[in-house]
């Protein structure tokens, strides 16, 4: 017989998840976990008005547990609240062999099952090259720089690495750009699957790099204000721990075979994630960091908004006319760089 302390806090069923904090432990069976998780996401959507009536919504999907979960729950929210809003999905094909081809199949199957229209946008079509080729071209550019100026090899190498970063930096810039350009004209809002762990990692990375302006853009509704040329991004899972999203996806059968991007381990984000998760009470620490950010966010957004209004920080990219902090947006700079090689 199972010991009593292994049971759900709300019924007699076996507990599958214990949410432990300093003050109490709440235990959930399968049904109560699903109910509680869905309620948490519903409350996040309602509290922050993430989905409103008569909106055309797109969900940025990767085939992973976060994006499939948020796509499913957003559709459910629209249907249960009888909203006259629509939801479609988009997936970006960077052309990462052995990874993206598999996850695209997962997204296709999911969208077919839940009758969701899916759009696929590819790096190849948008930038003329797939990610591996883009990364190789940029690496070649580094060698070219060094060859032309061997005396300053070290300086060049360091500057270029700073500029180029890990593969995820290049990929992230191009992905965000392509997502925006594919959706800004057609949709009112973009839903992303960012969870609490993602938010905490982003905040810490921005602190590490001293980019407080970027922290101001965080939260359930991204950005400091609505900007013409950017599709508004919202994050219904931002209060859910990554482990909770994984459990939900597991219980609902959304979790596909584990496939890992070959570049993911090289990212600074992966380092931050592993360091936080190795802390003994990492869940509580993540909840505290997330809560702290949410508390200071209104002030940060206000200050950042005043700063951007007074200094006219956002310009129009000289190449694509998208809003940009620089003369030319980062994605156009990369696109120009790879075209020139």
């Amino acid at each position: 017989m199972r010991a009593e302390n292994m049971n759900c806090s709300f019924c007699k069923d076996r507990s599958i998840y214990n949410n432990e904090t300093k003050y109490k432990t709440v235990k959930y069976c399968k049904n109560h976990f699903i109910k509680n998780f869905e309620k948490k996401v519903d409350n996040t959507i309602k509290k922050n008005s993430l989905i409103k009536n008569n909106e055309k919504i797109v969900c940025a999907t990767s085939g992973g547990k976060d994006s499939l979960t948020v796509l499913y729950l957003s559709k459910k929210y629209i249907e249960e609240n009888k909203l006259n809003s629509s939801i479609e999905a988009i997936v970006i094909d960077e052309g990462i062999p052995g990874y993206r081809d598999k996850t695209i199949e997962d997204v296709k199957k999911f969208c077919k099952k839940y009758e969701i229209k899916l759009k696929i946008a590819s790096f190849k079509k948008a930038y003329g090259k797939e990610l591996e080729e883009i990364l190789a071209k940029r690496k070649k550019n580094l060698s070219k720089l060094n060859k032309n100026n061997e005396k300053n090899y070290k300086e060049n190498s360091e500057n270029y690495n700073k500029k180029q970063g890990s593969p995820c930096t290049t990929c992230g810039i191009l992905r965000r750009d392509l997502l925006n350009k594919s959706c800004v004209e057609k949709y009112d809002k973009m839903i992303t699957g960012h969870n609490m762990d993602d938010e905490v990692q982003t905040a810490l990375m921005n602190i590490f790099f001293g980019k407080t302006d970027l922290i101001a853009r965080m939260g359930p509704v991204t950005g400091i204000s609505e900007v013409q040329g950017f599709v508004q991004r919202v994050k219904p899972l931002h209060m859910c721990a990554e482990k909770e999203v994984t459990i939900y996806a597991f219980l609902k059968g959304f979790r596909n075979e584990f496939t890992e991007c070959p570049n993911a381990k090289l990212s600074f984000r992966a380092f931050i994630r592993d360091e936080i998760n190795s802390l003994g009470n990492s869940r509580e620490i993540k909840q505290n960091i997330n809560r702290s950010i949410l508390e200071i966010l209104p002030k940060l957004k206000k200050t950042s908004k005043e700063k951007s209004t007074s200094k006219q920080i956002l310009k129009k990219c000289i190449s694509c006319s998208s809003p940009s902090a620089l003369e030319q947006c980062k994605s156009c700079t990369i696109a120009e760089e790879i075209r020139a090689l």
Binding site: I16, Y17, N18, K243, T246, F250, D274, N277, S278
Partner: peptide, 19 residues
């Protein structure tokens, strides 16, 4: 490299808690 926060434990095809 594995921690309780980075994994789910499945025993005989059923999800189980850390204890």
């Amino acid at each position: 490299k594995i921690t309780l926060e980075s994994c789910l434990i499945v025993k005989n095809n059923e999800l189980v808690t850390d204890d």
